[in-house]
């Protein structure tokens, strides 16, 4: 078996990880997708321990999920994969304000970064699903994204001989709608970023966390910047839903679409901020192009949406304070995560 052929075979790809394909001395050896890394300040467990009982996290499942994540067969046109809108170089976000789905259809919300979601409590900007497993099937079926009914997706995968053994190894049988979603969720669950200068700072290593970063952190975590109310130290998200003043009155109602509550108009999920530097543009609609724009947005107290949270008020930051805040936000960039070869799309 050639290396190339081997890589096309998921089952062998797993073997590659463990021992190298065919035992060849020059075969590429990569770290497993599944490890026990935990970003600094995160609690509750590791991706392995946080995985649900009906989808225990295994290397075979994560590897299978990775292949599916980048497989364009899962869109009606066979031209769009999950990875089309969630690019590894951008912390699995999309540099476009709103992504282009099948037939170049545009949605209304920015594709968020997929980082450290193993610790997430709800998903999508409006939090309409509670698990990664449920989330995984939604973009496949969404008409503006991949526009493929899950039964059709299953049929396509089932007809692809490369997947049969991988599904059997991972889930003990042929592909189903459930195992398809579970596998993709397993891959997303291993996307752990925890080696930014901020992470190292929290662990006591300030080699890459200088004075400007410290000043920015103090503003971020103090009443001066007020950021901590939604982005507490460590996880930098409280997993809540808030109207941060970025919504447009009469526009996307966000969380309200899920709860139907008047007070939830314009609320969106608070994202984690690891790698925020590379996940521009920002906000639920990608309306802010740069980190500087984001800081300016909060400094002026939002855009005046009538349901803006009371915590969003003009801050009166100086130019130097704004600069320090941006420096701090850039200290959340995990270069090792962005350069990690494990996220490289598999060879078709």
């Amino acid at each position: 078996m050639s290396i190339r052929a081997c890589v096309r075979d998921v089952a062998c790809a797993v073997a590659l990880v463990v021992a190298g394909c065919g035992g060849g001395s020059h075969a590429p050896v990569s770290r497993p997708l599944v490890d026990d890394k935990v970003p600094a300040g995160f609690s509750g467990g590791t991706p392995v321990t946080l995985a649900p009982a009906d989808n225990a996290l295994t290397e075979a499942r994560a590897q299978l999920g990775k292949r599916l994540f980048f497989d364009k067969q899962l869109s009606r046109t066979a031209l769009v994969s999950c990875g089309t809108c969630h690019l590894p170089d951008n912390a699995f976000s999309d540099p476009k304000a709103v992504s282009a789905g099948v037939d170049d259809r545009r949605g209304t919300r920015n594709a968020p970064a997929l980082v450290n979601l193993a610790w997430g409590e709800s998903f999508f900007w409006d939090g309409r699903v509670a698990t990664l497993e449920e989330q995984a099937g939604k973009p496949i079926e969404h008409p503006d994204e991949m526009d493929l009914a899950l039964p059709d997706a299953v049929a396509r995968i089932a007809s692809d001989a490369r997947y049969a053994q991988a599904f059997d190894d991972a889930y003990g049988g042929p592909v189903t709608e459930v195992s398809l979603r579970l596998a993709i969720a397993s891959f997303v669950r291993v996307l752990v970023s925890g080696e930014s200068p901020y992470d190292r700072h929290l662990r006591g290593d300030d080699a890459a966390f200088g004075e400007a970063e410290r000043r920015g952190e103090e503003i971020f975590l103090g009443e001066k910047g007020n950021c901590f109310h939604c982005h507490p130290a460590g996880m930098l998200t409280n997993e809540g839903f808030f109207n941060n003043g970025s919504a447009t009155d009469g526009g996307d109602s966000g969380r309200q679409m899920v709860t139907n509550r008047t007070g939830d108009a314009g609320k969106f999920k608070v994202p984690g901020l690891r790698n925020v530097e590379v996940s521009a543009p920002y906000m639920h609609d990608g309306s802010l192009a740069t980190l500087e724009d984001v800081v300016d947005h909060y400094d002026r107290g939002g855009n005046g949406h009538p349901a803006t949270d009371p915590a969003i008020e003009p801050l009166g930051l100086s130019a130097a304070e704004k600069s320090d805040l941006v420096v701090f936000l850039r200290a959340l960039t995990d270069r090792s995560f962005l350069a990690d070869p494990r996220w490289t799309p598999p060879t078709p």
Binding site: F42, S43, G44, E121, G234, M235, T237, N238, G240
Partner: peptide
């Protein structure tokens, strides 16, 4: 609070 689990974790929004 970083080592705390719910309901005392930061996702409580009470930290």
């Amino acid at each position: 609070f970083e080592a705390r689990n719910p309901p005392l974790s930061s996702t409580s929004q009470m930290t």
